[in-house]
Every structure is written in structure tokens, then in C-alpha cells.
Nucleic acid binder design. Sequence first.
DNA 1: CACGATTGAGTTGTGCACAATCTAATCGGG
DNA 2: CCCGATTAGATTGTGCACAACTCAATCGTG
Lengths: 159, 159
Amino acid sequence: MTTPPLPLPDDAELLRLDHQICFSLHAASRAFGGVYRSALKDLSLTYPQYLAMMVLWEHGPQPVKAIGERLRLDFGTLSPLLKRLESAGLLRRERSAEDERSVTVRLTEEGEALRERALSVPRRIAEAAGMPLDDIITLRGLLERLTDNLDAAQHGRSR
Amino acid sequence: MTTPPLPLPDDAELLRLDHQICFSLHAASRAFGGVYRSALKDLSLTYPQYLAMMVLWEHGPQPVKAIGERLRLDFGTLSPLLKRLESAGLLRRERSAEDERSVTVRLTEEGEALRERALSVPRRIAEAAGMPLDDIITLRGLLERLTDNLDAAQHGRSR
DNA sequence: CACGATTGAGTTGTGCACAATCTAATCGGG
DNA sequence: CCCGATTAGATTGTGCACAACTCAATCGTG
């Protein structure tokens, strides 16, 4: 009599929902990681390395900071990642002349050439995702809104 | 005349879209991580540790393998994670009597007690996400479909 | 010009994710 | 019963994510 099994039992409901949304996101992100891992194996790139290469393919030589802003990654992640790409011969890092603090990242010929071989990757991913374009666009919109909200909420301080 | 700037320029379009969807997902996942990081700081739990604790709170003592199946994590991730939770005094790991290969994970009183303090977390996350319930449900549905597709695609072999 | 603040980058340490490899216990046929 | 296959779990190694810290170059203001 006391607690009829009716709508929204606030706390427990929130908890379950919370569990599911954060978990779904986590799982989807890792599932994507798995598909990219096999799609990128031929190129000997990891997924975050692929992201960095895409930024350089699209926007040309730029300082480390710019790459970090586009990918929302900090130096602690990017510095070693770019070092690995450099020792793989895909790019060079050189101190900027006009600002000695800044390091310009520039693809080598080999790095530029890799773009051709990477062109088949998106198709493979799209096939694996197997979702109509509408849904993809809806999903992307929701994710971007969510990310903005989360970033704003945790907001001012840190990152 | 030859190439009117009309719909779906197949390769480039795919590439851009691909970039955006995978990137959005990646970014959203990390944004969630950030919010959880601050919400869980009081409990001295990381987000994956929190996930493992939720499984144990909800489903009681169980072997490592069962936890791994619920979270889709393998032993390589789970073993050290559970060890850290054990040395924090939140759980115990004991070899099963009837199958010496299996290890049963069981919360301590301290681990059970932590549940109370964790009840406020989902609300904080929901507030940070700041999205209507409808959108959350839509998003979750899309993510689950996506994850299933991706898992199926990369499918048979490995994991 | 001088000096404190800021900025771009790197380093260190912790923890997660996952592939590959290893061990010991259990299972299944012949 | 025995031996090969499978299974539960742990370990190792690589790479990403991020906090905290360090350092040198640059900027701003008195």
C-alpha cells in the first residue's frame, strides 16, 4: 500500500538510468576503438594517432597547441603521441623561429602519402556502424550537446 | 558542368562524417569521464572502479568473469582494478571452493556502506548532462544499436 | 628596462584498455 | 584412467588520458 510500483521512483530510477547512459557511451566508445584498431592495423596507427594525422592532413602544419585544441587533448597526451609518430617517420617537430616556445608539427612526405591509404578507412567504419545517415546525424547532435553541457558543468576550473 | 556541387560527394563526405561521429563519441566519453572524476573524488573511486562497484552492489558476490561480461571488460583490465579495490578495503577476492580456477569477488562491509555515499552521484551526473529524458532515451537507444553493430561487424574473431 | 605573470611544451606518475602469453584447474573422449 | 582441449585468472608490455610539476620563452606593466 505504501509505495505503489508507479512512475518515477526518483533515486533508483536516476541511478539505473545513469548507469545505462554512461555505460552505453563507454561501451560504444570502446566498440569504436575495436573497429578502428583493425581498420588501422595496416597503417600501423592507433585511433588517437589517426585523429592527429587527420588534423594534419586537413589543416596542414601547425603548433602542438592547435592540435590539442582541435582534439581537446592536452600536452601530456599529445607530446608522447607525436613523438611516436615522429619516430615512425610520419612527421617532424621543429621549434618555431618567431616564438621559441612553440613547436611546429609538419608531415613528412611519408606522412602525406599515408593519406591515400587511409581513404578506405571511413568507408569500413561506416559499414561497420551500419546506421542510416539520419540516425548518425541525430546521434552526433545529441553527443555534441551532451559534451558541451558536461564541459560547461564541470566548467570554469581545470581543463 | 562536369561535377556540380550537389549531393553526397561520396569519399570526402564519408570522411568528414566519419571524423565527426567517431570524434564526437570519443569527446563525449571523455567529457563524462571528467564529470565523474570530480563527482567520485570524495569516494576515492575512478569511473571504471565505480562501474565495478555498481555491478557488485546490484548483483552481489560473483566471479571475476561475470563482472567482465557485464562490463565487457577482460581480465587484463579487471584483475588490477579489483586488486586496487581490494587493497582499498572495499572487497575481498577468494578462490571458489568447488572450482579452484574461479575467484569470487565479495564486498566488505565498508564496500557495502559506500553505496549510501554513492547515491548522490547519479543526480549530479544527470544535472551536469542537462538533457531531457526523451533525448537521453533516444541517445541510449542509438548508442546500443551502434555498439551491437560494431561488435557484430568486427565480430567473429578476437574478443 | 626589470620583474612577475602567463604561455607552450615536456616529464612523471597513476590508472584504464587491450593484445599476447602463461599457469593451473577442469572437462571430455578414447 | 589419461591426455589433449578448454577455461578462469594473472601477468607483461604498449599506448592513451589526465593531474601535477618543471622549465624556458614571452608578455605586460610599472
